[in-house]
Computed example of a mutant assay.
Amino acid sequence: MSEILKRLSDEGVAIWLDDLSRDRIRTGNLAELVRDKHVVGVTTNPTIFATALSKGTAYDEQIKRLSGEGVTVDEAILSITTDDVRDACDVMRPAFDASGGRDGRVSIEVDPRLARDTQKTIDEARTLWDLVGRENLFIKIPATLEGLPAITAVLAQGISVNVTLIFSLERYGAVIDAYFAGLEQAKANGHDLSKIQSVASFFVSRVDTEVDKRLSAIGGHDDLRGKAALANARLAYELYEQKFAGERWEALQAAGANPQRPLWASTGVKDPSLPDTLYVDELVVEGVVNTMPEKTLNAVADHGKITGDTVHGTYDEARALLGALAGIGVEYDDVVRVLEDEGVDKFEASWKELLDTVTKQLEIHHP
């Protein structure tokens, strides 16, 4: 058992795995990660499923059956992904029970092609929730402008939500407001607020990728490289503290509501010149989730430097860093706008990859 990961967990950071495959479930690997690496949650996305489907034979039997039934590609994807997520939910159930429903959750994403369609996102969220049929599920909804009312509407039905694709502080504030509105409606609808959980997935590494690309184009300013992502995430935590201390939240809390935890997503370091555990070591603070690819998880287990809280006391420095970037022409609002647009495009591209993969598999196994 990793002592470093135990230390991270003891500091109040929930460790989730950003990966899932049928092999991982069937071989007992996921259960081993829960036991040995303090993993208490799982996140998925279309790329993860496409990768899993393109390797090995774990899905052959199901695809052969689905092909024989003459299902559409979309129906096949729905069946395959919800089966995996349901089984993963069952593996994670002990962590769910041990944490009082806070952790032990598995996330499944609505079709990213619906990211700009509020009503279709709501409908698909309900379909996924009912199909998986496990209370330790999270439905992932992107924090696009069209996604915000969908987040509220889905929460209002008593469904737990992982809000994904958050880059900007302004949008994060709107996500928290959407969460509050959803809980208020859920209460009015007679739902038990204590059963509803949510996380807000703030993307980390992509901010450095975009900012550092712009710094390279400007030239110089090496002292500002590899710092914007941490500054942005730390200011997100400051905003979380502010919003979850107001009267609106206190009223919901009195009714049994749970805070919507910040989740650090995209924590694999993409720049080889930066420490490979950077977005874990430097974002340690009570009450957050860090979802890691297995490579990052193993790196932290091996040589992470967990030295206590690395978020409180950094807010002024973070603001100064973003100010310095603005001063040389790296405009924050433009960076986060580009990242959101790219994020939606990347999710759609990975969904197309998943569609193509399943289409080929159905053709191969057609009776």
Rank of each mutant, 00 (worst) to 15 (best):
Ala229Lys: 09
Val204Thr: 15
Ala229Ser: 13
Gln260Ile: 00
Leu274Ile: 07
Ser205Tyr: 09
Glu184Asp: 14
Lys187Gly: 02
Gln260Val: 00
Val269Trp: 03
Lys213Asp: 15
Ala236Met: 15
Ile176Thr: 09
Asp271Gln: 03
Ala257Val: 00
Arg225Lys: 15
Ala231Ser: 14
Val207Arg: 02
Leu235Lys: 10
Pro259Gly: 00
Arg214Leu: 14
Asp212Glu: 09
Ala265Ser: 13
Phe244Ala: 09
Ser205Arg: 03
Asp281Met: 13
Gly182Ile: 03
Leu283Thr: 05
Tyr240Ile: 08
Glu250Lys: 15
Phe167Cys: 07
Glu170Ala: 15
Asp212Pro: 07
Leu263Phe: 05
Phe180Glu: 04
Glu247Pro: 12
Met292Asp: 07
Val211Gln: 11
Lys270Ile: 05
Pro272Trp: 02
Lys227Thr: 05
Ala254Trp: 01
Gly190Glu: 04
Gln253Met: 07
Asn232Ala: 03
Leu252His: 02
Asp208Gly: 06
Glu241Val: 07
Gly246Ser: 13
Leu278Glu: 06
Arg206Asp: 11
Pro272Leu: 02
Ala200Arg: 00
Thr267Pro: 08
Phe244Ser: 04
Thr291His: 10
Glu241Pro: 00
Gln260His: 03
Gly268Gln: 14
Ile176Pro: 05
Pro293Ala: 14
Ala186His: 08
Gly219Asn: 06
Ile176His: 00
Glu210Lys: 14
Pro293Tyr: 10
Val280Ala: 02
Ala200His: 01
Ala217Arg: 15
Thr267Asp: 13
Gln253Asn: 12
Asp222Lys: 15
Asp281Ser: 03
Val175Met: 02
Tyr172Trp: 06
Ala251Phe: 02
Glu184Arg: 05
Gly190Asn: 06
Val204Gly: 10
Val289Thr: 11
Leu165Phe: 15
Phe202His: 10
